[in-house]
Amino acid sequence: MSDNRLAARQIELEVLRYNPETDQEPKFQNYSVPCINEWCVLDALNYLKDNLDPTLAYRWSCHMQVCGSCGMMINGEPKLACKAMLRDYPDTIRIEPLNHFPIERDLVTVADDFIAKLKRVKPYIIPGEKRVPTEGEYKQTPAQLKRYRQFAMCINCMLCYAACPEYGLQPKFIGPAAISLAHRYNIDSRDGGRDERQEEIATDEGVWECTFVGACSEVCPKHVDPAAALQQVKAASTVDWYLEHFMSWVKK
């Protein structure tokens, strides 16, 4: 093979560092890391931590794009460090913690706000029809599955929040991933919890804060297309509004 997959490559990493115990503000620290072209950015960070500077803090777990914990800004873009391949980058790479989240330490951000929002949208099936196990399972056809499947692929990596300018400006915004997940359950044929979730997401802090910039869908590593979910929630909520007002007029 004539490719250079295993070629050695010296990569300059510019890493934004912040130590809450000693630093007033974050500052960049540069490292020259011997890498292999086929590595991902996470491999480079792991090499750095193992061999050059054990004090560097960052999150990761699976190294295979499923746990969602290695999100960071890589050359200004929100990326999974285990999905960002060195071969796609120049020799100097700038690494910062995810935008729009407070920095806990180095590349580790505070995710409390996102977790609280996830809980608010009740991301679990609230059965429309209560049954006991002896009555059998809740059945679903492949067609019913396909309606929401894409929105169920979210790995909670928060890249979409780091990309969303509305969330940056208005942190109360429930945001792309949490609303997409609410939508995923709302359109699940087994679910009956839409009214409860609408109270959270069909509001000014919910979908109506979204101006459809679309950045969330561009950065999502799992092709969830959160922007689509939010527009669908807007459309459905608008229909609700008309039905509600039209119905009350009909009743008079």
Binding site: E25, P26, N99, I103, E104
Partner: peptide, 9 residues
């Protein structure tokens, strides 16, 4: 010691 640093937009 937690002292999260907020980057303003």
């Amino acid at each position: 010691s937690r002292r999260p640093y907020v980057r303003e937009v």
